[in-house]
Design a protein around this nucleic acid. Sequence first.
DNA 1: CCTTTTTAGTAAGTGACGCTTACTTCATTG
DNA 2: CAATGAAGTAAGCGTCACTTACTAAAAAGG
Lengths: 207, 207
Amino acid sequence: MKKEPVKPSSTDKREPYHHGDLRAHLIETVRQLVEEKGVDGFSISQAARIAGVSSAAPYKHFNDKMEIVRAVALEGMRRLGAAMSSGADSASAANFGKINAVGQSYVNFARAEPGVFRLMFGLTETHAGDPEIMCTGQETYGIVLREVAAAMPDGTSEGDVQLRSYLLWTFVHGHSFLQIDGKVDAAKMAASEDQLIAEMSMRVLSN
Amino acid sequence: MKKEPVKPSSTDKREPYHHGDLRAHLIETVRQLVEEKGVDGFSISQAARIAGVSSAAPYKHFNDKMEIVRAVALEGMRRLGAAMSSGADSASAANFGKINAVGQSYVNFARAEPGVFRLMFGLTETHAGDPEIMCTGQETYGIVLREVAAAMPDGTSEGDVQLRSYLLWTFVHGHSFLQIDGKVDAAKMAASEDQLIAEMSMRVLSN
DNA sequence: CCTTTTTAGTAAGTGACGCTTACTTCATTG
DNA sequence: CAATGAAGTAAGCGTCACTTACTAAAAAGG
């Protein structure tokens, strides 16, 4: 059904017809709403109202609420991947610096956008079989695999890299959720977050 | 529709009047609904219908939907604590056996009741300041702290125990969520779950 | 250039839900 | 044995997700 508008004249940016790009506008609006009111605290009607269109308009661009939410999750997954990637690039390789930077980027993203983060990982039932999200998620995890492989000595087996990567992932993932869900009091922690991350990566990557 | 006779004589436990104990009945019904339809997939009306009462009846026992959900979360937190506790009791102390058993109980609970598990930890906004849930959560985490302290040599500092406990918690927590959210393919993992848990506890508790 | 088709919008309506209000029923209690 | 108050009901309000039928306007094309 999707049919790209097929840029009609020279150098335009494919700006659609009436509204300007309602689809992208809605995704951004929903992203903000999810962030401030939670996943089940926002409504399509509200997003449409904010965007200045009728409550039926969104359904010209998305089949249902789930599909909008999935679009927001996908866009978030892409941004998370970008953050992790650039985190790794701008860190030194010494002392597992790149690994730590990737982990820190993950946690930072969760803390900066807890609503979207929850969307991306929780609510699996809504986007369980979405190939685009799953694929992007795999790519993002690939960053971890790549950096772990680079940090380990040559000749480390594939399975070993996978195991260590997964242990690191569970750590940052668990830490992120416990953080944003307020289950852990940062003031009461015996160590700072970088110390935690460094401690963990050392323990997981050593031997 | 059955109607409990509600033994009216001598040593009754204040069994309510008309229905039998609608409050407890609703909590159980909602627990099942949450488990099969997800947190935002169930409705109070539906639960009331199943319980055989009018859709206004639940509001005689709970102020709003959030409050029912919170009750389900609290009851789940109690059951998780019980599972972890009995897991630790029925395991050997050798080779961090008790620690591993506690972690395994945590993951098992998440896998057995993903809906309730998500309720307990995600959706913080709905029960952010609930003192009963927070307190029960603290008690449950106390089991981890106790077992870690017991597994470490005498004279280990309080802060050290806290750090190691937290690292273990993030691991089982992250692993649980990645599991129930289908982000990890068990078949593709290089190691079994017990191996994972044992590997992790060894790395975190050694030195 | 003017018609046809397609896209992107609207208004109005449906059924369900959260929750409230006003009323009823009935066990407990003074 | 009335009075009380807890525990239920029916009916209704506003909102929501989503549908249907219609329309404005851009694109396509002869």
